[in-house]
Nucleic acid binder design. Structure first.
Length: 402
DNA sequence: AAGTCGTGGGT
DNA sequence: TACCCAAGACT
């Protein structure tokens, strides 16, 4: 276990002045039972001054025993911690670790990242998803070099202005790198706190309240460890399904556990069904046995990545007709649509697609970047050098197996 | 201020 | 299978 678990370079208690009693919870947000008599233990209002030391102590003690040993916890380099925080957005720890290790070898400093080409950066990010994170990380590195001499800033107001860094990520970086008492509210913390106070609305509907709770609970001395501990608690014990309440340091303080409602909380929003789109995709061969690929525009889904051109199949349209039309509209060339290469089903967050991929033969015209940033003829061996989204990597694999 | 933005893991 | 969810930010 780490020896520096309890650190104290930052001792500014006044930075965390809020107490629960300064911000009483509206009764409407509490789950059953009015706050009357002596039977109202566990209400959020009761996490006042007297409760806070015990809550903080018990969590920190648990963390010292059960906290995870993660690569980015072995450093205080704000750049490395920043990279980890960005990669970890909406992404599981297990997925991030290999990307994180490779990233720091390839881009060991802010300056080295700032100097890199965007294509290099996206290639290193390939497979992680949410590619705006990589584009913003790259842009922010260049801003830090330009405006702050390549040194990561230390004040919250400056950090949160950087592209890709919101309130939670700023708090995560500043507490982890400098032990500053800045609260966080990520998915883990939302779930833990929603259960602690038995929040009776979906966390999305009570963001302000949850920030208050996180800020109030935060240990002003051991801020780094406290925030890390809170996230570990959510990731390892206070899990979405089957939380291990018997092992939880806050078991006796948790209102959800008191009410035996830990499996019902937090309340989730009902989602609207997602659409399913049929897409025609062209693998266009020329007489030199090269393939035509295009680079997607920066702002759109998968912005900056390369793809095999194509588009949505209109109602009543055949796959072949769609491909021929899309290539004429988007690239400005004539092709002949041939055999089917592969069919790929892929699920994004807000829709599903079926890629109907066909071999095509180039016929005439000069390829133009009409609805993309760039088009290029490449050999099969050169495809590796370009960043592609996952569904297109599957197409490349199918091509290689020809 | 609801929609948008990827992919992998777990059930 | 299909669905949920993950160290959220941006528009």
């Amino acid at each position: 276990m780490k020896s520096d678990r309890v650190s104290s370079e930052h001792t500014n208690e006044s930075a965390n002045p809020l107490t629960a009693r300064d911000h009483p919870l509206p009764y409407s947000l509490l789950l059953n039972h009015p706050p009357t008599g002596s039977s109202d233990q566990g209400r959020w209002e009761d996490f006042g001054i007297s409760q806070l030391p015990e809550l903080r102590r018990s969590l920190l003690n648990w963390y010292a025993e059960a906290g995870r040993d993660l690569p980015w916890r072995r450093t205080r380099d704000p750049y490395a911690i920043w990279v980890s925080e960005i990669m970890l957005q909406q992404t599981q720890v297990k997925t991030v670790i290999p990307y994180f290790e490779r990233w720091l070898e390839q881009f060991p400093t802010i300056a080295s990242l700032a100097d890199a080409e965007q294509q290099q950066v996206l290639k290193a990010w390939q497979g992680l998803g949410y590619y705006a994170r990589a584009r913003n990380l790259h842009r922010a590195a260049q801003l830090i070099v330009q405006d702050y001499g390549g040194t990561f800033p230390t004040d919250f107001e400056t950090v949160i202005e950087l592209p890709g860094i919101g309130r939670t990520t700023a708090g995560g970086i500043l507490s982890a790198a400098y032990n500053q008492p800045v609260a966080i509210l990520d998915g883990n913390v939302k779930r833990v706190l929603a259960r602690m106070i038995a929040l009776e609305v979906p966390p999305k509907r009570a963001i302000g309240l949850l920030w208050q709770v996180s800020t109030t609970l935060l240990d002003p001395i051991h801020s780094r460890d406290f925030n890390q501990a809170l996230m570990d608690l959510g990731a390892t014990l206070c899990t979405p399904k089957n939380p291990a309440c018997l092992l939880c340091p806050w078991q006796t303080h948790c209102r959800a556990n008191q009410l035996n409602m830990q499996s019902e909380l937090p309340i989730s929003e009902n989602r609207t069904p997602i659409p399913h789109k049929q897409i025609g995709v062209a693998v266009i061969w020329n007489e030199e046995h090269q393939i035509l690929i295009d680079r997607r525009r920066q702002e759109v889904l998968l912005g900056g990545l390369w793809e095999f051109p194509g588009g949505k199949i209109e109602p009543g349209e055949t796959v072949e007709a769609c491909i021929q039309r899309e290539i004429q509209e988007e690239i400005g060339i004539e092709i002949e649509v041939g055999d089917r290469l592969i069919t790929i089903d892929h699920a994004y967050t807000h829709f599903r697609v079926t890629l109907n991929v066909h071999h095509c033969r180039y016929v005439s015209g000069e390829p133009q970047a009409i609805e993309c940033d760039e088009v290029r003829w490449v050999t099969v061996d050169e495809l590796d050098q370009y960043p592609f989204p996952k569904a297109n990597v599957q197409i490349i694999e199918a091509i290689r197996q020809l």
